Computed example of a mutant assay.
Amino acid sequence: MSTEALTVRLAERSYPIHFSQIAETLKTDVAALRAAGRSVRVVSDARVLHAHPSYLAQAGFQDEEILSLPAGEPTKSVEFFSQCLSFLASAAANRDCALFAFGGGVIGDLTGYVAASYLRGIDFYQIPTTLLSMVDSSVGGKTGINLPEGKNLVGAFWQPKAVYIDTALLQTLPAREFAAGMAEVIKYGMLADLELFNDLNALDGLNAESPELPGIVRRCCAIKAQVVTDDETETAATGGRALLNLGHTFAHAIENVAGYGQYLHGEAVAIGLSLATHLSVGLNQLPNSDIALANRLIQQFQLPIRLNHALPVQELMAAMQRDKKNRGGRLRFVTMTALGTAVTTSGIDPELIATLWREAGAE
Rank of each mutant, 00 (worst) to 15 (best):
V135I: 08
V114F: 05
A11I: 08
L275Y: 03
G272E: 06
D349Q: 09
E65K: 08
L293K: 12
V30N: 08
L33I: 08
F61D: 05
S138K: 03
A354N: 07
R218W: 03
N201F: 01
G37M: 07
T238D: 15
Q58V: 12
K151V: 06
S138C: 09
D290Q: 14
G141V: 05
L283C: 03
A354H: 08
M134E: 08
L132Y: 02
D231C: 09
P350W: 06
L110I: 04
L244W: 03
E65Y: 05
L196Q: 00
A318K: 12
Q321A: 13
Y15I: 04
R296L: 06
V78H: 12
A92Q: 15
D231T: 10
N146V: 02
L49P: 11
P174F: 06
P174N: 06
V40Q: 11
A89F: 11
G282F: 01
H52R: 12
R34G: 08
E177S: 13
Q321D: 07
F250I: 10
I186Y: 01
R176T: 02
L203W: 04
A276S: 14
T172R: 02
V135D: 00
L275M: 14
L153Q: 12
A71K: 12
K161M: 09
E64S: 13
A242L: 15
A180Y: 03
Y263S: 06
E267A: 05
A46S: 14
V78E: 09
A253F: 00
N94W: 10
Q83S: 14
A268G: 04
S68I: 08
A93P: 10
D166V: 00
L6G: 00
A31M: 12
L200T: 00
T335A: 14
I127P: 01
V43I: 15
L131K: 01
N326E: 14
L273R: 02
V43M: 12
A236M: 11
T345Q: 13
Q299V: 07
F19K: 00
F157T: 05
A310Q: 14
E4M: 03
K325H: 10
T238I: 15
P350I: 10
H309D: 10
D166A: 01
Q314Y: 04
G150F: 02
I254A: 10
G215T: 01
